[in-house]
Amino acid sequence: MFHVHGVTKVYQMGEVQVHALRGVDLDLYRSEFTVLLGASGSGKSTLLNILGGLDTPTDGHVYYGERDLTRASEAELTRYRRYHVGFVFQFYNLIPSLTARENVAVVTEIAKAPMQPAEALQLVGLDERMDHFPAQLSGGEQQRVAIARAIAKNPDVLLCDEPTGALDSETGIVVLEALQRVNRELGTTTVVITHNAGIADMADRVIRLADGRISQVHVNQTKLAPGELSW
């Protein structure tokens, strides 16, 4: 589904050049649950941003199906994000002025074949709190709204950047359960980046990044349920 070939990303930070990615080759498959594991500065976020069409590589190519994302225009990238990608952020990024249901609706209103906002919220177990505003929800609940928002448009791929990074372990597990359920029931390709090695055990495949390169790829023979993870 994704074919990443020789991707390099160099940032100019003042007078220093920072090599975030140094020639990454990678393939991602449909309906797969992948965990990108790495310490901070390993380049995992940069890779996720490039996959999500938020950033472009300095060198190399990223194919989404047949399409070369590295050659897409600003408007094409907007359409790509709009119709194909679901994002979940570390800090939720909900719209404070919209209720949980409306935060989902804000995306479904511009999508092509979305599910009902209520349905998406039900999937993440929030059917009771649909008409609450973000300020009235706990951190875990806010993150589950963010997941519902990301999946409601029936995206081809779900990209999650440290989705449990701001949560305690108990709430984190509830959020991961929601992600796993979506992956299992809807078959959405899911990429989760984290520095928490424990989460790796629930993935189909674990890709480790270090210093901008892929250092190890590991396929889990038996996946653990989020509740069984050692945090």
Binding site: G52, L54, A75, T78, R79, Y80, R81, R82, Y83, V85, F87, F89, N93, I95, P96, V106, V107, I110, R149
Partner: peptide
């Protein structure tokens, strides 16, 4: 800024 950038990430166009 954050709210609007999030919407851009979610696929909203500049005009929206």
């Amino acid at each position: 800024n954050r709210e609007l950038a999030s919407l851009r990430v979610l696929g909203f166009e500049r005009a929206e």
